[in-house]
């Protein structure tokens, strides 16, 4: 989505403040960093979006990889509870830390397989229940 050149410095080192005490922080297009990063980290759960990012060579950009590493703060409290798609988001975030996966997801076949597997699992996991 972002198309400008990126630098390692562009990703902040500390996670953004949780909404309660982040009232006066700077806004980007009307959104806080918390909102944007929450949206982005959950968008990563969509295999097709990952495939798109890979096709735009984002996943081989060292700065972007560093950003993915930084995004791991979503796996911890107090941020964890804001994920509304926790299962897929956490799994994809974990997979994205592996270089092999970052290289492989450029294949539409893999994206498609992840897509159909995810759709299948989403209805099957509670089958016994």
């Amino acid at each position: 989505m972002e198309s400008g050149p990126m630098s390692v410095d562009s990703s902040a080192l500390d996670p953004p403040a949780v909404p309660e005490d982040g009232a006066n922080e700077p806004k980007y297009g009307g959104y806080s960093r918390f909102e944007l990063e929450l949206e982005f980290v959950q968008s990563l759960a969509n295999p097709q979006y990952l495939n798109y990012l890979a096709s735009r060579k984002f996943l081989t950009n060292p700065a972007f990889v560093a950003y993915l590493d930084y995004l791991q703060y979503w796996t911890r409290p107090p941020y964890l509870k804001y994920l509304t798609f926790p299962t897929a988001t956490l799994k994809m975030l974990e997979l994205l830390q592996q270089e092999k996966f970052r290289q492989d997801i450029i294949s539409p076949d893999l994206a498609m397989a992840l897509f159909s597997e995810g759709m299948k699992t989403a209805v099957e996991w509670h089958r016994e229940g």
């Binding site: 949206e39 959950q42 968008s43 759960a45 969509n46 798609f85």
Partner: peptide, 13 residues
């Protein structure tokens, strides 16, 4: 089980 493309396109990003 993830945000669809429509949702992503409607989002803040």
């Amino acid at each position: 089980p993830w945000p669809t493309e429509d949702k992503i396109r409607m989002g803040g990003l």
